[in-house]
Design a protein around this nucleic acid. Structure first.
Length: 618
RNA sequence: GGGCGCGUGGCGCAAUGGCAGCGCAGUUGACUUUUAAUCAAUUGGUUGCAGGUUCGAGUCCUGCCGCGCUCACCA
């Protein structure tokens, strides 16, 4: 239960005084003729047209600044569109209404409705000359105070900002209310996702929705969350990807489908990982991974244009050009270019590890990893990825890392090249700003090969069983009906939003990033207590302060006014028998709450002296 | 999970082991064109929690909780 702070008590008191004056604190009917930005624009337009007639407006919003100067006051109100100053004069408002300002009954953070005509103050600021001011929602908890100063150069310096990351994430509403730049991030996020939809719709793809709860997880290598359907007596998994469900739809006759939705992975969090994240996947028939590359390049350029106005963006001070074409190279070529060797010269995990060791490149590498994992996870992930600042497509991945991709095509007279072709797949990932942004393949559509891959995966990763892709018999059944050749694509949308909003942490592009649940607070306990009492039909009493004691106690009472002080005083100083009597008096339902916990006084206390009982609580 | 760092009024921050302080906000008063308004006065703290060392702990030690960074993990 809420325990008001000193500042909140002051506002509660103001709320009472307002109600005494007959002011409605939370009215239901609101008037507004203009959004704030519209009102200002209209005034500026009239000014430039040299019109003389008054522009009457009614605007609404939250007060963000209030500066009383005696019989005249200035306020800034803000709605989503912007801010405008209110010019408040006792002459215009009348004594009674102005009194609310003068007595400070209206605070910063309150929502108001203001009617008047547009004007400029003596210093030139566009304002509403307010004739009528109405409180439309009282704020009881003050928001953190942020003051702004505009320098001559136009930059805004903020004083006393609200920047404690934990508070900002846990109370995102306050963060948003105070920090305009945070609000802007999520506007851009919405624009980015709309841009993706518009683009994919424009490509003739059908947006679909597939199950979040799946009887088998698959399509990626990740630890899933599991849950249980009670009525069906069935274990279910939260999806780690959409892949297998989307590709079944190509069997069903759609040429191209996509889905934007949430995936869940039961793994660590980092600046670029959240346990739940937004994924985009699409699958398009009759194209291969080169076709997917073309779409990828155009799609990112389009999204950047829609969000930032240009395909040339800046990320953390670096200029990044998302316009096609992007650099494309195979993982083998990347290793040759950046590390100066051909991994095909080391065709087993043992020889590859030995070579890397001779170069001093094995830090963090498990010698028991598979050959493909060494190349993708270690060589690419630890030694190449961070250098890929400009958009780069890295293609042709080792087969054992890509269970849903077709082998690369071609033939060669050379033995080493034949081995290369046999052991690699048409898969690519693309990297921007040193971050993996997505993953795509020429999709495997041979059910016989697919079944072999499931078995391979199981064999390779037997010891980490929960990270392998389980064999999905229904998926194979679908594929046996015939799946058109197709190219598929998956990308973490949150990372794209990070890129387009210049953010370095995924948490800053998620409205509610995952945080550990905070400890139960006293306020939570009090709330529980109050609810329990209501359910039992008891009166309750919180913060019962006992004479000469620092303890605060909460009680369930079967009825009010039954001599609590007297009985408790006895119990505190007396024997267990008296305590039990007390309990009896309360119909066997005496609960005592201290700052730490809620205790039930019951038979478990037998044998404990009252003094020990109370000292155990303190 | 490992390492490093942080946790002090509502917010932003100080404080060699020695009286817990400052700014903003708040409260009271003054002011009819302010804009980080100003002026005068003023309230508010069990320094995340629990122990320990010490004459004395915000500060040192141990454990716990939370957050951040980083490593590990991570298609």
């Amino acid at each position: 239960m809420w325990q008001p702070t000193k500042l909140e008590l002051e506002r509660l008191h103001k709320a009472q005084r307002l109600q005494t004056r007959g002011v409605e604190l939370y009215p239901a009917r609101i008037e507004r003729t203009h959004r704030i930005a519209e009102a200002v624009d209209k005034f500026l337009q009239a000014e430039s047209d040299a019109q003389v007639e008054d522009i009457g407006v009614t605007v609404t919003g939250r007060i963000r600044r209030l500066n009383s100067r005696g019989k005249v006051s200035f306020a800034h109100v803000e709605d989503e569109s912007g801010r405008v100053q209110l010019f408040l004069r006792v002459n215009a408002l009348g004594d009674e209404s102005y009194e609310l300002i003068r007595r400070k009954l209206i605070d910063v953070d309150d929502f108001v409705q203001a009617s008047g005509t547009m004007m400029r103050t003596r210093t030139g600021e566009v304002s509403v000359n307010v004739a009528e001011l109405r409180l439309i929602s009282k704020s009881l908890t003050p928001l953190p105070v942020v003051k702004e100063q505009r320098t001559a150069g136009g930059t805004v310096i903020e004083y006393g900002e609200f920047k404690d990351t934990e508070s900002r994430y846990r109370q995102r509403y306050a963060d948003l209310a105070v920090n305009k730049s945070v609000r802007e991030i999520f506007v851009k996020r919405a624009r980015a996702i709309k841009a993706l939809r518009d683009f994919l719709d424009g490509e003739g793809m059908l947006e679909v929705e597939t199950p979040v709860l799946q009887p088998l997880y698959g399509g990626a290598a990740a630890r899933p969350f599991s849950t249980r359907h009670n009525q069906l007596h069935q274990d279910l998994y939260l999806r780690i990807s959409f892949e297998l469900y989307l590709k079944r739809l190509l069997v069903g006759g759609y040429d191209a489908v996509y889905e934007i939705g949430r995936d869940f992975r039961n793994e660590g969090v980092s600046y670029k990982h959240n346990t739940e994240f937004t994924m985009l996947e699409f699958y398009k028939a009759y194209i291969d991974y080169k076709g997917v590359m073309d779409i990828t390049e155009r799609m990112f350029a389009y999204a950047a244009e829609q969000v930032t106005g240009s395909a040339q963006i800046r990320y953390q001070g670096t200029a990044i050009d998302l316009a096609p074409p992007w650099k494309r190279m195979s993982i083998r070529e990347a290793a040759q270019e950046l590390l100066g060797f051909d991994y095909m010269d080391y065709p087993t995990s043992e020889t590859l590890y030995a070579y890397l060791d001779s170069r001093g490149l094995t830090e963090g590498l498990d010698p028991n990893d598979t050959w493909g994992r060494m190349i993708v996870e270690h060589i690419l992930g630890n030694h190449i990825e961070q250098h890929l600042s400009q958009p780069t497509i890295i293609k042709d991945y080792p087969r054992d890392m890509s269970p849903f991709a077709k082998r690369i095509q071609g033939t060669s007279a050379d033995e080493k090249e034949r081995r290369y072709i046999a052991s690699h797949t048409e898969r690519f990932e693309f990297f921007i700003a040193g971050m993996e942004m997505g993953n795509a393949f020429t999709e495997l559509n041979d059910p016989r090969d697919q079944q072999a891959r499931f078995v391979d995966m199981k064999r390779l990763y037997a010891e980490e069983a929960d990270e392998t892709t389980p064999l999905d018999e229904d998926y194979l059944k679908a594929m046996r009906y015939g799946m058109p050749p197709n190219g598929g694509f998956g990308s973490g949308v949150d990372r794209m939003v990070m890129l387009l909003t210049d953010q370095t942490s995924i948490r800053d592009v998620l409205l509610y990033p995952h945080l550990r649940a905070p400890q139960v607070t006293e306020a939570d306990l009090r709330g529980q207590f109050m609810l329990d009492a209501a359910v039992r039909g008891y009166e309750y009493q919180l913060d019962h302060v006992l004479e000469g004691s620092k303890r605060r106690i909460a009680l369930y009472l079967p009825a009010p006014n039954i001599g609590v002080d007297f009985r408790l005083a006895n119990a505190l100083e007396g024997s267990l028998a008296q305590l039990q009597n007390l309990r009896k008096a309360f119909d066997g339902a005496l609960f005592v709450m201290t700052d730490e916990a809620l205790y039930r006084v019951d038979d478990d206390l037998a044998g404990v002296t009252a003094a020990d009982f109370w000292s155990a609580l303190s």
